[in-house]
Design a protein around this nucleic acid. Structure first.
Length: 416
DNA sequence: TCTGGGGTCCTAGGACCC
DNA sequence: TCTGGGGTCCTAGGACCC
């Protein structure tokens, strides 16, 4: 059996942990630049504030209804997430951290166990230690555990735990669940399926394998098996990323090449740090820049360039160098740039054999070690490389940032 | 005025090989 | 002038997730 433990309204709940008077008050958390709504408490959901919506569209309603609005504080959320995972590991060694607020647990070999009691215990433990509310869904497959979790969230009388452990419950759940709410069926696919008369998750399981293969792909076929109770998606405990990105929208438009150049360097350095943290090297650096797609009247420009580095590296110097090279090859004067990013791919474990002919400068490795150690020790980017801005002249709109209660430092650069 | 960021996987099609 | 068959690898783009 798989259990899916999911924190309720995670970011909003994290903020609430440190503002107890906000219990039962509406809370909203905004994305970077205070741009979009990315988390809502139940009270905020009831006010009709929609997920992913641009924040300015709800400014009025937030004022009128006294909604508590927060800028996102990822350092805080990551720390809270780690605390939850630490607790979960006490309950099973077989755990997949699926996202910042969700983990799959495998409950194999727990013979004769009462899943409801066990999961209630997990839930209470998390609540007591972190003050974060969770819901748990248990079922024979991951996709069904997702369904069970949804049911646990939806019906308060279940007290946050639901188990699908019989054919009867499985069918009842699937006849209840709308196709668009199935894990792995997004907007496009649900529209296509609805046109075929597939309205509930159950209808989907009634399609033939051949039909699904023909009109969709192996992904959807796997999903059908999972919903039928045949487990095909295994627990993925490995954590290493296959791509690493740092991308940002800017506070306003920029035409200045030197400004973008500095941003690219800093994004590249951040990517390299993430890369070293998971003890990997990369082979490919991609840079993209684009104008503001929402400003239709403006001349639009988007371009991206990938460069393959002749050797595997995680040196900030190398990655910055190639990122700059890619940037120069796509930058065009005369556009108003609003967003840019650096993406690393071709990622391999650090212990791969060095190429016979070309390889990273071995001196970089020890230098990076020192830089990482210092930047960790002082909890901020004390050591930079020369193409980064020495003073933090750039800014992100974050007008409603809560303090970093758990980490006691500000890694988010705020200049106001 | 103001519209996020970071991932995964799959497929189709092109380039290239024998 | 006529022009097969089978395979691999890579990439871009599209779908999905939180």
């Amino acid at each position: 059996m798989y259990a899916l433990v999911d924190c309720n309204n995670f970011y909003a709940s994290c903020e609430r942990v440190f503002h107890p008077p906000l219990n039962e008050k509406p809370i909203v958390v905004l994305s970077n630049n205070d741009g979009c709504v990315i988390a809502r408490s139940n009270e905020a959901k009831q006010l009709g504030i929609s997920m992913g919506a641009p924040a300015f569209k709800f400014e009025k309603i937030c004022q009128e209804m006294q909604v508590n609005v927060f800028s996102s504080n990822y350092a805080l959320y990551a720390d809270m997430s780690n605390r939850v995972v630490t607790i979960l590991r006490k309950y099973t060694p077989d755990l997949e951290v699926y996202s910042i607020d969700e983990s799959f647990l495998r409950l194999d070999g727990f013979v004769g166990i009462n899943f409801i009691t066990y999961c209630q215990k997990i839930k209470q433990d998390i609540l007591k230690s972190t003050l974060l509310p969770t819901c748990v869904g248990v079922a024979p497959t991951k996709a069904l555990a997702k369904v069970a979790n949804r049911i646990a969230k939806k019906y308060p009388h279940l007290d946050g735990v639901y188990v699908i452990d019989s054919e009867q419950k499985r069918i009842k759940a699937l006849k209840w669940l709308a196709i668009e709410d199935v894990w792995g069926i997004g907007r496009k696919l649900s529209k296509k399926l609805q046109q075929m008369g597939v309205i509930k998750a159950y209808d989907f399981t009634q399609l033939s394998d051949d039909f699904i293969q023909k009109h969709f792909s192996v992904v959807e076929l796997r999903l059908k098996k999972e919903l039928q109770g045949i487990s095909v998606l295994k627990l993925e405990e490995v954590v290493n990323k296959k791509s690493i990105a740092t991308t940002r929208s800017f506070d306003k438009n920029y035409t200045d090449k030197s400004y973008l150049q500095e941003r690219i360097s800093t994004f590249a350095v951040t990517c390299a740090e993430k890369l070293r943290k998971q003890q990997s090297n990369c082979r490919v650096v991609t840079v993209f820049i684009n104008t503001n797609r929402f400003q239709q009247a403006q001349k639009q420009y988007y371009n991206a360039r990938s460069i393959t580095i002749p050797y595997d590296t995680n040196s900030s110097f190398d990655i910055v160098k190639y990122a700059q090279k890619a940037f120069h090859s796509i930058f065009e004067e005369g556009y108003e740039y609003k967003k840019a990013g650096v993406i690393l791919s071709g990622i391999q474990s650090q212990n791969q054999q060095l190429s016979l002919f070309e390889h990273a400068n071995p001196k970089h490795a020890s230098l990076m070690k020192v830089m990482d150690a210092l930047n960790t020790k002082y909890h901020e980017k004390k050591i930079k490389i020369a193409s980064q801005a020495l003073d933090k002249t750039w800014k992100m709109r974050q007008q409603r940032l809560s303090p970093n209660y758990t980490t006691k430092w500000n890694d988010i650069l705020v200049i106001k």
